[in-house]
Design a protein around this nucleic acid. Structure first.
Lengths: 211, 211
DNA sequence: ATATGTTTCGAACGCATGTTAGATTTTAGA
DNA sequence: TCTAAAATCTAACATGCGTTCGAAACATAT
């Protein structure tokens, strides 16, 4: 009994992996069930033993991707060394998000890449997980601001959007090996906290004007 | 003669507008020539009097979108008041990019949204314009860094990517009316130059540690 | 070894799409 | 008004897609 279920579950997982990978590469509409089936060593018709439709398959890929990054960031907050500052907390969250997105997780990267172009009803059903993840970040930032680790004169909602943009866009250009994920997280937090401008304590001359 | 050409050009423009709008909304593969034709008050077959194929139509939409944002940022640099600092220059570039992306320009936003999921040969032919635009930003940032307006210990390439991400991602969430584009540009540059962390001159107690 | 349930195959269907080409309408100049 | 070119329509095509379903292959327990 246990092995029968496991056989089916193995196939399911193989299909989902293939779907996530292909969705991520080509987008949803451009991806064919034939391609997914081939990548999963099956025939297209066989997919329907495990999934009711292409939309259903998409839905599960999206959900898994969002759940993974959510859990990764959540765990990053729980496993912090005691006495960590809010900067440390945010830095850990940034690294967890980036790592999930860029390190072998086709589900999360597929989610980020294709979310903008999926059927409306799928989006409507998936949006809850997205909102929950946004809420997780909101809480992290609000706590930091209330503890005076962040300026009080900034719109946290806007900062969150810009931060998410910088993080998520990496899926469009990142190539493993060129820059380490840690380096990216460092730069990200440097930008976020201290900025990359020079403090220019001697702001007197016209050094900064255009030559 | 002049009016005949103009008639054809008007239709061409109407088709391109419709294509950009629909591509932006639904993505490339999910967009039907029937939809584009209907939005342009034509029949699907009539499109072929103006364009050789769906790919060709896509190609032109992408090119126009990239050229527009390129020109907008270029002009923002030329029309700066004399004596502007490098911060001002970068701020102007950010605002120009955002304005083009978010203000009624379906071409640029279509380009940003769907670039990741287009046929390979179209991408190969379009990549030059993308590179040219990246080079424009690179020059702006390098000049700023050489003039000591930016730290010297940062990877400008990485900063450019993160900055582009924060900017481009806005197309996924921005809603006119909620936040003005100017406000966004301000926050963007605040983050970029000064950061949103508190300088904490009195770094003594454990205020920042987790409660 | 047989029987039962599980998983996959293979072929087919209906439908929508990109594309084509000839007929038709519209436009502009003589 | 007549005509030729330009622009659009209309209907059809080939193709590829998501999906269905009965048959085949496989696995498991008696």
């Amino acid at each position: 009994m246990t092995t029968e279920q496991s056989k089916s579950e193995i196939s399911r997982a193989r299909i989902l992996d293939a779907a996530a990978k292909t969705f991520r590469q080509k987008g949803y509409a451009a991806t064919t069930l034939i391609e997914i089936a081939r990548a999963a060593d099956m025939q297209a018709g066989s997919l329907y033993y495990h999934f009711g439709s292409k939309d259903e398959l998409l839905e599960e890929v999206l959900d898994i991707g969002m759940r993974r990054v959510h859990e990764a960031v959540e765990e990053s907050q729980e496993h912090l060394p005691p006495g960590s500052s809010h900067r440390d907390r945010i830095r850990a969250a940034v690294e967890a998000h980036l790592t999930t997105l860029l390190k072998l997780d086709d589900y999360t990267s597929a989610n980020i890449r294709i979310f903008g172009q999926i059927p409306e009803d799928v989006r409507r059903r998936h949006i809850r997980l997205r909102d929950a993840y946004a809420e997780l970040w909101r809480r992290i930032l609000v706590k930091a601001q209330k503890s005076r680790a962040l300026r009080s004169d900034i719109d946290l909602g806007l900062v969150r959007m810009l931060l998410m943009g910088a993080l998520n866009w990496s899926v469009e250009w990142y190539q493993p090996g060129r820059t380490s994920i840690q380096t990216m997280a460092d730069h990200m937090c440097l930008m976020l906290f201290s900025g990359i401008g020079i403090d220019e304590p001697a702001r007197s001359s016209e050094d900064e004007t255009v030559a």
